[in-house]
Amino acid sequence: MTATHDLAPERARVVLVGVDFGRDPDFDDTLDELALLASTAGDDAVARVIARRKAPDAALFVGSGKAEEIKALVAGHGAEGVLFDQALSPVQQRNLEQVLGVSVADRTALILEIFAQRARSHEGKLQVELAQLQYLATRLVRRWSHLERQRGGIGARGGPGERQMELDRRMIDQRIKQLKLRLGKVERQRQTQRRARARGDSLRVSLVGYTNAGKSTLFNALTKAGAYAADQLFATLDTTTRSLYLGDGVPQVALSDTVGFIRDLPHKLVEAFKATLQEAADAQLLLHVIDATSPKLHEQWAEVERVLDEIGVAGTPQVVVFNKIDALPEGQQPRSRLDWVERPDGTRVARVFLSAHSGEGLADLRQLLVRASLDEPLIPDAAPASTAWPVPEPTL
């Protein structure tokens, strides 16, 4: 949605819209995450609208009255677009654009746009293009003016617009097939690399977590890899694997940094990034990194668990890493750096509190990795349970 000047990109002004249907306990009534997504994509949120309905309106999603309210906000703020926090159907998107007079995008399209901006590797670009085309294929319903059906004289059926739409759809289908073939080849290459690593003595460990939890910063702090890290959503999309030396007599660790998860991560995006996420699937240990400062800590923790279950790795051993403790106020500092906590399935996992930025607590995490490398239990029998965090206790 971002327009461009001759010299520098111009941030587009957008209105954010969220609809509460009363069924989603994780509904974000602040729209803060959508605003952060918009900012990451290069847009400025100038207004926010919360609508409450029992069910989506088939034509306009929010209903005609709320659509007129949004239209007035668009005009009043000089907005160039509207972003919805939920998925829109192609018909709803088209109708809203006609009523509002500006471009309309949903959460899925916004995440895809960010991924397209951030992909750096050949594989990452292929994965994002595949997801975008799969999303676009459902939108070829009189979506653009050059696709609109142009009726001719009496008896005419279709016209150049309809033929153009069929051509576009055929071209998209062909490109999707090509991308799937190329990604299949990349996945086979990755499998060969993973088998080679599996034959070695290295413990395979993957960093997973909600986007912007600090995975890449932790990866750099442990391995000195210099991977790109920034305080923004989806700072890195490409999996990076480095060896981690833990000391003489201790097997090395093959540590991988993976793409971050987010609420309502588009299924097609998860599917497209299957080869990348396979690093997590093949790991012997997951380091689940959580932003200890996030007001949505519980929801983000649960969402990552849901995605891990979706890709079939919910049963992989974990260490839960509460990151960014240097940013916590004095009254919220943990009493100790290491304890254990129960996951939703009842399994106990080690939990460590640290700051990847300052280095505080990294020694405790390294010690846990030493235990894992030597096949020792991560939770000693005498370890305290969930005592390191002050009230309220952050359990799922």
Rank of each mutant, 00 (worst) to 15 (best):
A356Y: 08
D375L: 13
D238C: 05
R371P: 11
E342K: 01
M165F: 00
A41R: 02
L7A: 11
E123G: 08
Q117C: 01
S89W: 01
D345M: 05
W389F: 14
R11C: 00
D44I: 01
G153L: 03
L100V: 11
I50V: 07
I70T: 12
L369E: 13
D291S: 05
P344K: 07
D339Q: 09
G124A: 10
T387I: 14
L287R: 06
A327Y: 02
F219R: 05
V313N: 07
T258R: 14
R335H: 10
T236S: 11
G200V: 10
S103I: 04
W389S: 08
R94S: 02
V19N: 04
Q252D: 14
S355G: 13
E123S: 07
P266C: 07
R53P: 08
I114Y: 02
A67D: 03
T2R: 01
A213C: 04
V289P: 09
L34G: 04
A383D: 14
I379S: 07
Q98D: 08
R48G: 04
A8L: 15
V259S: 14
F84K: 03
T192V: 15
Q189D: 12
A227E: 01
Q300C: 04
T239C: 11
G78H: 02
M1S: 10
L308M: 10
R13F: 03
P251E: 11
A350F: 08
V208I: 13
E330R: 14
L73T: 11
A275K: 08
A272Q: 09
A12W: 00
